[in-house]
Design a protein around this nucleic acid. Sequence first.
DNA 1: AATGAATGAGCATTCATTCAT
DNA 2: GATGAATGAATGCTCATTCAT
Lengths: 193, 193, 193, 193
Amino acid sequence: MKKNKPKYKQIIDAAVEVIAENGYHASQVSKIAKKAGVADGTIYLYFQNKEDILVSVFQEKMGQFIERIKDDIAKKSNANEKLYSLIEMHFRQLAVDHHLAVVTQLELRQSKKDLRLQINEVLKGYIAIIDEILHEGVEEGLYHSELNITLVRQMIFGTLDEVVTNWVMKEEKYDLIAQASDVHYFITNGIKK
Amino acid sequence: MKKNKPKYKQIIDAAVEVIAENGYHASQVSKIAKKAGVADGTIYLYFQNKEDILVSVFQEKMGQFIERIKDDIAKKSNANEKLYSLIEMHFRQLAVDHHLAVVTQLELRQSKKDLRLQINEVLKGYIAIIDEILHEGVEEGLYHSELNITLVRQMIFGTLDEVVTNWVMKEEKYDLIAQASDVHYFITNGIKK
Amino acid sequence: MKKNKPKYKQIIDAAVEVIAENGYHASQVSKIAKKAGVADGTIYLYFQNKEDILVSVFQEKMGQFIERIKDDIAKKSNANEKLYSLIEMHFRQLAVDHHLAVVTQLELRQSKKDLRLQINEVLKGYIAIIDEILHEGVEEGLYHSELNITLVRQMIFGTLDEVVTNWVMKEEKYDLIAQASDVHYFITNGIKK
Amino acid sequence: MKKNKPKYKQIIDAAVEVIAENGYHASQVSKIAKKAGVADGTIYLYFQNKEDILVSVFQEKMGQFIERIKDDIAKKSNANEKLYSLIEMHFRQLAVDHHLAVVTQLELRQSKKDLRLQINEVLKGYIAIIDEILHEGVEEGLYHSELNITLVRQMIFGTLDEVVTNWVMKEEKYDLIAQASDVHYFITNGIKK
DNA sequence: AATGAATGAGCATTCATTCAT
DNA sequence: GATGAATGAATGCTCATTCAT
């Protein structure tokens, strides 16, 4: 399995760094290879082409991202606590990994449509978690029984994504994680008095 | 003023069409020129460079977009009605202009970071409207007095943006405008029972 | 019509020179552009791709080659004289144009199969001339009435081609044109006493 | 002697197959190695480089080719019968080995000039046989005493080569061996009545 | 002897922009 | 103002060959 070989991970990590530092369009394969400490050709022993590197970056990193949220949620006893946990972990994981935040919020969005479609596939796993929490919340009687789950899920995801993107574009000058409780309050209670 | 000359508008409209039909990366200047019925070189009499065309597309189209929302809001008597109006108009305007929806939600996001920064400048006008409504709502005693306006504005924008993007990616198969009331309800009341 | 513009011919001629001097595989587009005194990109205003340059080289040069033979043959009064004329002109034209001889006999043979197929299309015009002479000779009672024309044409072409190739590979150290009469004698009378 | 080891022959045979099936340019060393059932590196224990494989293919196969013709000729009692035998065997051997025909007539011609020079070395053995027959024929009083042997040999070889190439390019749809007697007649008697 | 992972040089093509007419 | 021919920088990928095991 190539994914467990050390060079695979070296290249993935190099790609994140190179993209974060140089931007998506200035991230040549040769630059990634150099940062990873391998020859250009070696890249192609582990990845089909440049796009495959980028998709794999997202898969690997988001895979961990989602996994950690799942683990954290598993410890919570009700939907509302799980939702808070998801928000907090979402923010925390991007707050502690500057490179990853820049890459996911800004750089990878510049990719071509078909790469973005593959990225969306990866995000389905995340979407599923949100859906599950919402269903659970309805069953537990915490959330409205007639909740339009598909729509609410989009709103939650859009909210989290925009908040993180803003924070990255403001050069991460304030405490992202500290926003978690306000965001959670807003999602559950809305803005009405 | 170049902006009032007919060729300026021809080029802007050609750009929207070309991008919507061919995608961002396949939208060469020569293609836009051809669609606009002018020579390649003529483009550069009206725009500094390719990026300037795209920024101008956004400015022109979003300028109208925002203006129409402003007009509609002016008729409403309280913040909550204005918020509903904003959501409904946001959805409505993109729902009726397929090309514009594809260009703003999908294609223009593939642009380089500095173009996106310029796009954000344009969006500040929209942000200001949301802020104003929120302030008004607080003053009217409709919204929480200690509302974190900066954060809530991001959440509202993120929500609207994600809902529209999803609709575009689902090939606009359902009624976007019909989502407005659910979205408004969620924003004001949250998901809690 | 692009074929009549001066740059078209410049590029064709540059290509012949570059291929003759550097060999087929070392003939980069940039080298041809430089020799032609145009920018790399200009090549692509006149040719679809690299292969198109090479096919066009053959078409242009062989077009002239065949045309001159036709003109010369037209002056002759019987098939046998025409055949001699064809042999002599075939040798003469390659003997006076060293670059062309190297390119047609050695370099262009290294091309991919599909380029060679296109080259064969061009050669059909030459084949047709040989066929015509043979038919005429039969009608005139000069050649065997039951002549297997398809086969004989292959033999004539193979003979001429091999004789020229040998001459090029022997670095053109002897007089190719002087071979014409022996070759003609052999083709008409064979080797038997 | 490496040439007698089993892997040497395995690699040679794999090369012929791979080239015949995939074409010259798509015949990577790794593909030949795989077909031969050895590792890529093993190739280089038996051959100096890729070109050396191809030269060796030609040497081995043409060695047999020439040997069989020699054997057949030895049984004949005069030059003219020997010439017929050479033509017939030339056609027969390529007619029965489709792979070899494709490789020698089409694929190996795409090789670089210096490989073609080495191939010519191998062909000298064949040339020598033709020369010998011609000399014999002159001595026997069958052929013209003042025969330009160097030239005639080129013509014979060119004729045979072109006839076979045509047959291969016409996808071997007709009987090549059946052409032998017409070719022999043409070479000895020419086309004149 | 045999392996196969690693190497790294080499090149066709696109397209935003210019400027002579 | 308008044209459009010409420019030239910039880069992902292949594959013959090596060499540590």
